[in-house]
Amino acid sequence: MKSFRALFVDKEGDRCFTQVRTITEKMLPQDEVTIRVAYSGVNYKDGLAVRPDGKIVSRYPFIPGIDLSGTVVRSRDERFREGDRVLVTGYGLGVSHEGGYSELACVPGDWVVPLPEGLSLREAMIVGTAGFTAALSIERLQAHGVLPGSGPVAVAGATGGVGSMAVALLASLGYEVAAGSGKPAAAAYLRELGAASVLSREELAGDAQRPLQKERWAGAVDPVGGAGLAGMLGAVRYGGAVAVSGMAGGASFAASVFPFILRGVSLIGIDSVQCPHDMRVRIWERLSREWRPAGGYEKLVAAEVGLDRVEEPLAAILRGELQGRVLVKM
């Protein structure tokens, strides 16, 4: 491509703004694998990237977008060749390295994951960073003994990207899912994804001031953090675990040691950014086969937009207004 379009975020004083520009490859990093991007997604980090106080981007102008799927155009890495279908999530993409909101991307070979058989480029970004994080959370919960039949598993922020994917995946794997949301109107959507029950944020957290509550959850997936995390920890059954991957509800929480030392509860940190490559490949293979929901991934799509219409969903995700996944089609 002699020239192509990309979405840039730029900063003037204390104000950030976005603009679609036509550029050439010389403006991209000169890494090993060049990809013609098919899709990206709208993630919470992407919303932060276009805010002056988001603390995600450190240099301007910059191309955001923390995930992408597409086709290899050229490669100096022997593992990939022209025509290969691939995906990239995490590492520095869209944070310290020009991201996926571009018709062409150039990334290090170590970041690239071959697209598994049975998964389309579109489906890869329906799953995206959010779905990968949800799947990683579930795998870690299973390693801690939280299995189907163990009891109800709570999902906080269930209408968001990670939360909605966690509900769909857990339900398809046979778990009883209790979906927590601050959106009463989303109950039908969450039940369609497979939730057995839908609770308000307050009901999910219970009495966060009490160090121990009635044992309710075999485990929990929490992409929200904040005060609600303390409440869920206090209600996890003996030997259970909570996988935490986000901070939309706050970066800190106040909790007691009692769930850990009296019930043997585990708090598992989930990092999808620097996750080892072999683990990435394994998770994506599972998402394309045995973990694929019976009805597929399409029901998780809230909207599909082009580069010139991505600004509104980027703002909406920070306001907590998105339900499901928004795709960005190049």
Rank of each mutant, 00 (worst) to 15 (best):
F4W: 05
G90T: 07
V198S: 11
C106L: 04
K26Q: 12
C106T: 10
K329L: 04
R191M: 05
G149N: 11
G161Y: 10
M165Q: 11
L204S: 03
S256I: 10
V73P: 03
A134K: 09
S266P: 01
A166T: 07
Q142Y: 01
D84N: 14
A135G: 15
A143W: 02
D222G: 04
R319S: 06
L267G: 12
V198C: 12
R286N: 09
D31F: 07
V42L: 09
A254P: 00
L173S: 02
V310W: 02
E117Q: 14
C275Y: 11
S181C: 02
G219R: 06
Q19Y: 00
G240W: 06
P52E: 14
C16W: 01
S172V: 04
R263S: 14
V153P: 12
Y39C: 12
L318Q: 12
A254T: 14
R280C: 02
L314V: 01
S252M: 10
L262D: 09
K26C: 00
A196H: 15
I270S: 03
A294Y: 00
E82R: 11
A195Q: 11
A230E: 14
L322P: 13
A303E: 08
Y175M: 07
G306E: 15
G182H: 04
A179Y: 13
Q213N: 10
T133S: 15
R325T: 03
Y238S: 09
G231P: 13
C16P: 00
A179L: 10
F258P: 00
R85H: 15
